[in-house]
Simulated scan of single mutants.
Amino acid sequence: MNRKGRFRRTLSHEFAEFIPEQLREGVLYVSTTYATAVHLCCCGCGQEVVTPLSPTDWTLSFNGETVSLSPSIGNWSLPCRSHYWIEDNRIEWSGEMTQKAIDAGRSKDRQLKAAYFDVRRAPGEEQPPPVNATAASSEILDAPDVVTKVGHDGPFAKLLSWLRSFTSNGRG
């Protein structure tokens, strides 16, 4: 994470058909036409963060005043490696994750996408491998910021409960 102390606490949002070429710091740009939300990293590093909106990527909720993105934003490919949630235009900072946990999360994402798109496969196409939990995926489920989020009702709690069902030592 950026150590300059420039961590943002809030974002405003703008709905637009096209994402502007010049992004302003502190603004989440949302294109429903292209199912994408884009912002500059909230740590202040200035890197562009693109979050595709889809059933297998991020979901955006808008309550008429504020926006929320789910799941969290984990900028693991950026030098800052920042990790945060966007809820009701507020930034909720999360702890860092180990590389092992990041890799497990990416693997789990690929498997969930494969399972989602499996229903769209042509008959006779090869099936993706089953989702297997690993020690690293257990680290994700036990991360303090994730455990905190479990207390909330809604789709994230349901997803986490479902993911935990794949672990041999799941806590639900």
Score class of each variant (00 low, 15 high):
L163S: 05
P52N: 13
L69Q: 11
P130M: 11
T56G: 00
P144F: 02
K108L: 15
V131F: 08
V131W: 04
K108R: 15
C41E: 13
E48L: 00
D153F: 03
E48R: 11
H39C: 07
A122W: 11
P130V: 02
G74S: 13
P144H: 06
V146K: 00
G64F: 11
F62A: 09
S161H: 10
V147R: 14
V119K: 13
S54E: 12
Y34R: 14
S107A: 14
V67A: 08
T32R: 14
L141S: 06
P123V: 03
I91G: 09
W76P: 01
T59D: 15
Q99E: 15
S107C: 08
S61H: 11
P155K: 10
R106W: 05
P129C: 03
Q99Y: 04
P71F: 09
T36Y: 02
K149P: 00
V30F: 04
E65T: 13
R81L: 01
N89Q: 06
I140L: 12
D57F: 07
A35R: 15
G74A: 10
K158S: 10
W93K: 07
I140W: 14
P79K: 12
S82E: 14
W58D: 04
T98G: 07
R90Y: 05
A133D: 11
F62D: 15
T56N: 05
K108S: 11
V38F: 05
K108G: 04
E48M: 03
P128T: 05
Y84N: 07
V150A: 07
Q99V: 03
K113F: 01
R90P: 02
E96R: 11
T36F: 00
L78M: 10
D57Y: 10
A115S: 13
